[in-house]
Design a protein around this nucleic acid. Structure first.
Ligand SMILES: NC(=O)c1ccc[n+]([C@@H]2O[C@H](COP(=O)([O-])OP(=O)(O)OC[C@H]3O[C@@H](n4cnc5c(N)ncnc54)[C@H](O)[C@@H]3O)[C@@H](O)[C@H]2O)c1
Ligand SMILES: NC(=O)c1ccc[n+]([C@@H]2O[C@H](COP(=O)([O-])OP(=O)(O)OC[C@H]3O[C@@H](n4cnc5c(N)ncnc54)[C@H](O)[C@@H]3O)[C@@H](O)[C@H]2O)c1
Lengths: 208, 208
DNA sequence: CATATTTTGTGAAATATTTCACTAAACAAT
DNA sequence: ATTGTTTAGTGAAATATTTCACAAAATATG
């Protein structure tokens, strides 16, 4: 199985390629991409070779072709539907965000336990949590986003898993238990800040 | 220099330890922690050995002591002050979040370019971006959070860097250029979802 | 008190990841 | 055509990370 960092780099290459494309760049070399993504040129070539992506010696890679190949590997050639559970601060920020659409990800509905939050007419409708199971199976939703308080997160994950969700992005700062038929990625902002603080201090220490 | 994954694990150990402490657990063994964090017991011990954390053979580690040692390594024994730039969806979600305080991180102010967003009386006051520089230096802020649109992100980073911020958490989905006197951690949610999609598909492929 | 058991701490071994370095293809220049 | 230059592709080497496995310490047991 291919490591997460490698897949993250593929996403970064793709993003960099979008920028290059916007600037009118048509062909690109491994070292241009390397610089844009802050890795070595051989890393770029090795990553590509793992996935059988090839360019032309002395001619580099065609930007458009490369984007398509990366999108293909990353499973971006069909629109992905996601639901959010928890229409609080984070949940609403995500619902209002328009940037996922251009990445082929649509947030189709949200669910909450608090009736004050319900709003079936909103752009992203907010339903009661009791509707989650049928909504997911009727609409073949594969992605769930957990944006509820930590205490409720495991229970929401269990609901999602049972309903047939295949992957979960979890914002609650606790580690969740899941079967291995479901993929869970955690966004833990406390941890990210903590991590930042470590490296700030580490870098201050090195400088003395 | 010690890799990010190792530091991330330290944070996870600490979080797991808080849970154990809450349950009244006083001493703990490497395999308990390993299970809680989903790594091997020797990984736990190796991590600890890197930082000179030691327990007692057959007696394991004292939960309270271990928490303090980890907090110390992670630089959590003093309160850290952070500012947000960009009082939009994400910026406001972070301002309203009370969970950072218990981690010793205080969001002391936010800054925006749009006068409609200004609110100097709010719990977390929102000022004009022109006040950023003096606020950071007067208040010795070390952490900046970028929550502005991608096009403005580099410019905000430059302002922060110039003002003396040492570490930045960036929510804009682009790669930023910084000197190496400043640490930048990126939270790229598009990328995280993309990554999730890759592994969902990969796991579907494996199962056939 | 002696013996058995548990669990740490850590070199060594095993894996995984990244970088090196070189071959060969593609193209340009003459 | 010939020669030179550039750059992809890739095994091999170098590094980094994780796991193994075992000696030594701490504690329990009889
Ligand atoms: N807001 C942030 O900036 C931030 C930062 C870091 C982490 N987080 C984490 O993200 C999660 C959400 O944070 P938030 O600030 O949006 O919280 P919030 O309290 O604003 O929103 C949580 C929402 O979840 C709903 N909810 C609670 N239990 C539920 C259940 N069982 N089923 C369905 N809905 C339920 C609540 O009604 C509420 O609307 C939390 O775990 C938090 O720790 C948030
Ligand atoms: N909202 C989300 O869920 C979400 C998800 C993924 C990524 N992001 C990223 O996070 C960032 C913020 O997203 P958002 O949804 O909060 O955007 P938003 O448009 O709601 O808010 C951006 C804020 O930044 C302010 N701003 C713009 N230029 C500025 C400048 N030069 N100086 C100071 N303030 C400035 C705007 O006035 C606005 O208040 C974006 O880069 C976005 O791509 C957001």
């Amino acid at each position: 199985m291919i490591g997460r960092n490698c897949i993250v780099r593929l996403s970064r290459y793709k993003n960099a390629l979008y920028q290059f494309k916007k600037l009118g760049v048509v062909k690109i070399f491994s070292d241009n991409l390397a610089e844009a993504v802050n890795v070595t040129a051989s890393q770029v070539r090795k990553d590509f070779s793992i996935f059988g992506i090839s360019g032309n010696k002395r001619g580099g890679y065609q930007v458009e072709v490369l984007i398509e190949q990366l999108k293909d590997i990353l499973g971006k050639n069909e629109v992905q539907k996601a639901v959010i559970v928890g229409a609080g601060n984070i949940g609403r920020a995500l619902m209002n965000y328009t940037g996922f659409e251009k990445e082929g990800i649509t947030i189709v509905a949200a669910f909450d336990i608090d009736p004050h939050k319900f709003n079936e007419q909103a752009n992203v409708p907010i339903f009661g949590i009791d509707k989650l199971n049928s909504f997911i199976s009727n609409n073949k939703i594969t992605i769930g986003i957990i944006a509820v308080p930590a205490v409720a997160a495991q229970q929401v994950l269990d609901l999602m898993e049972h309903a047939g969700v295949k992957g979960v992005l979890n914002f609650a700062p606790i580690s969740l238990r899941a079967n291995n038929n479901i993929v869970v990625n955690n966004i833990n902002l406390e941890l990210e800040l903590e991590n930042l603080i470590y490296y700030i201090n580490a870098s201050a220490r090195t400088k003395e």
